[in-house]
Design a protein around this nucleic acid. Sequence first.
DNA 1: GTGGTCTAGACCACT
DNA 2: GTGGTCTAGACCACA
Lengths: 126, 126, 126, 126
Amino acid sequence: MIAFNLDPKSGAPFYRQIIDQIRYGIVTGSLAVGEQLPTVRALAVELKVNLNTVSKAYKELEIQKVLETHQGTGTFIGPVSVRIAPAEREAKLKSICAEFYTIAASYGFKKEEMIAELKRIEGGAR
Amino acid sequence: MIAFNLDPKSGAPFYRQIIDQIRYGIVTGSLAVGEQLPTVRALAVELKVNLNTVSKAYKELEIQKVLETHQGTGTFIGPVSVRIAPAEREAKLKSICAEFYTIAASYGFKKEEMIAELKRIEGGAR
Amino acid sequence: MIAFNLDPKSGAPFYRQIIDQIRYGIVTGSLAVGEQLPTVRALAVELKVNLNTVSKAYKELEIQKVLETHQGTGTFIGPVSVRIAPAEREAKLKSICAEFYTIAASYGFKKEEMIAELKRIEGGAR
Amino acid sequence: MIAFNLDPKSGAPFYRQIIDQIRYGIVTGSLAVGEQLPTVRALAVELKVNLNTVSKAYKELEIQKVLETHQGTGTFIGPVSVRIAPAEREAKLKSICAEFYTIAASYGFKKEEMIAELKRIEGGAR
DNA sequence: GTGGTCTAGACCACT
DNA sequence: GTGGTCTAGACCACA
């Protein structure tokens, strides 16, 4: 299972926050391979968002082969194999970091500040 | 001066890319206090976008007191004083880092990997 | 709720009149924190102006953190906290008063006359 | 004579600041009836503004019959008679005050604050 | 020539 | 249906 938590102020659209939290749940093991996710309707009620919003998140993860939908049965975490191709992995890290760096730097933050703040996140328990 | 560069694929709207590049130019010193920016028309031509798009970017920065516009005269970098309210600064850093962390973590990257990659960026000359 | 009212003769641009009326509505309590504003489209129809004009007004207030917009949901009055930074507040009062004084004095009005007239406005119920 | 002083940050356009200062000079007696004003060119140089800007200010005051231009001789303060018709005087005060009040109130300033700030201006020496 | 405002209309993103 | 972005083009205000 997994506890979802949407922040309207984050700027990120809800559907993206849902996607990120599901991916995050998977890599941290909160969501096991093959585990069933809440139904679209149930999650929409829980998060107090529109059905379409949850639907969109599930659909995008399905496209990325992270989830599998079985008609009439529900939505499940897909096999671990296809998460990220190892070849892509480094490129992805680079692109995410570069974008982050550009944005933070445009506000005048120094690299040391960014790193210090990152280290502070979640205490390092992970 | 400063070389602008729009990327239609980035997903970020044009006017926001312009804003970010001006902010970035200021914090890196490419744009000096009091310096005149390209005219709305000139920049629109250079970037091949509509007048209003450039105008919108300048306007937002003016509201944020980053720029000063004098009608009939031009647009200038404002005084350095109120770039970001100190109180907001830390909150901004936190929110940027948190979002970055969530995204990167959702791809399974560990904090150490992120920090290592960040350290690699731009050598630290800044 | 709030009754908007544009005056084409006032000299002030439409979008600024909208901004002023929203700010005024907030400080007088006609607009409560968290309340939803008319949709961009609805207000545009009501005021017989273009969508973009209303949008521009909302956008400026959003940048100033007076409003919050949630895409797909609507536009809302933001939390009361950061209406005007306390530091700016006094400066704003000074500049508004100084301009008023200069104009009134240029017509030969004495300070006592201005103050007497001000006291007469709205009975003081506010 | 009169010492002009333009403030680029005031928001008021230069030509209006010039107009206000001339009117102000007249009502305070710094500028006597029939006195000659600086030439457009001289004032433009002194204030470091465009010729057209000064020209526009003089022209508007001429329309209001505050100034008189004699071709080839210069610009002079007109006869005092036509400054403001007494009938208009009260209406003018009301309209100026009302506008000021609306703007200040939209920023949440109370009447007492406005009056206090007004009293503070120029010490009351006038 | 500089920026500012407004319109009309199209298309996109999110709920 | 909500707001967001962009374009094209007109007209205005200021220096």
